[in-house]
């Protein structure tokens, strides 16, 4: 595990001058992931904010080989690159070790890209897929995705007079991916950089597909102050809205347990996308959201309990 002094001594892979919004969570996450990898790397990127804002021709913010193909195929694309790499390595035409990382947003991962990702994982390519999950299609102007939480306002699930935002619960992508029985899957938050760093290091150590789901705020879509990006992600972890855990070789471990689980209001209140929940008409939904968070958190702890002592066997 690297400390900040060491991370700061490594070359920056995502350079400034990109056109991501001020206070964007995606670039913080990507920097943390890439600084955690102290090896040559090749990246693939699904269509999305991260892709468009970092590569506006003729400018690019990427200091490492980077490719974008389309929206739904970052995993399939990197699987092609990785196959060519293995091919050339076997033939002795390349000798260095290269780490392959694919980035996609929640739209490109939970929704349109889930098939491509599932296929690439099942085929066993050696790559790390990082989903930067900001819980909606932000690049196209804040539309609801399979990751948008219950009750959140987006442009296609607006809070109106009769419908209070998105009325469906988000899917649990990390568990869906874990069901592929890949060597490593984890949830991270850039607010907890040390946890993130450790998980990335673990992920890339495996000779196979690995997956990291990272909560990433979008201050335009979540409607919070731009300086609050890290704070809000921290609150997501402390309310157990976004638990930090890993599933390593089948064994689930929660990597951070808040000393005191904060009430979900602390997560909802600073975000304009939940503003309608703090009105008399819709405030009962907060209880429902709390119940759901509690259930998921308890279930996760129970699951962890199943594996107690497993590692020592």
């Amino acid at each position: 595990m690297a400390n900040l002094k060491e991370l700061a001594s490594r070359p920056e892979r995502l350079i400034g001058g990109h056109r991501l919004c001020a206070g964007c969570g995606a670039s913080i996450l990507v920097r943390q992931v890439l600084l955690s990898i102290d090896k040559p790397m090749v990246l693939s990127n699904a269509t999305g904010c991260l892709e468009v804002a970092t590569t506006i021709f003729p400018y690019t913010s990427w200091a490492v080989p980077w490719m974008h193909n389309a929206f739904e195929n970052a995993a399939a694309t990197i699987s092609g690159v990785e196959t060519a790499y293995r091919h050339f390595k076997r033939q002795g035409k390349i000798d260095k070790d290269i780490v392959f990382v694919a980035f996609g947003g929640d739209g490109g991962t939970y929704d349109i890209g889930i098939q491509s990702l599932s296929g690439a994982i099942e085929r066993g390519h050696r790559f790390l897929y990082v989903c930067y999950d900001n819980q909606a299609y932000m690049n196209t102007g804040i539309q609801r995705s399979g990751s948008t939480p219950y009750g959140a306002h987006t442009m296609t699930s607006p809070s109106g007079k009769v419908i209070p935002g998105k009325m469906q619960k988000r899917k649990d992508l990390t568990m869906i991916i874990a069901a592929h029985h890949l060597p490593y899957a984890a949830q991270v938050s850039p607010s907890h950089w040390r946890d993130l760093n450790k998980k990335v290091e673990k992920a890339i150590s495996y000779d196979g597909p690995t997956f990291i789901n990272a909560l990433s705020s979008c201050n335009r879509g979540w409607r919070h102050k731009m300086e609050d990006t890290i704070e809000i992600l921290r609150v997501a972890v402390d309310t157990c809205v976004w638990p930090l855990y890993e599933i390593e070789e089948g064994i689930l471990r929660i990597t951070y347990k808040p000393r005191e689980k904060k009430p979900v209001e602390e997560w909802l209140k600073p975000q304009g996308r939940y503003k309608h929940l703090f009105t008399p008409k819709y405030e009962h939904l907060i209880g429902e959201i709390q119940k759901d968070v509690d259930q998921r958190w308890e279930r996760l702890q129970k699951l962890e309990g199943c594996f107690v002592g497993e590692k020592d066997k």
Binding site: L4, A8, S27, R31, T229, I230
Partner: peptide
Amino acid sequence: CLLCFIYCPDSAIIVEDGKMKGIN
């Protein structure tokens, strides 16, 4: 502590020899 460095979205914190040196 270099927290500014690890949380900057714009890679704009200048660090030299492990020390925060300013802002780009």
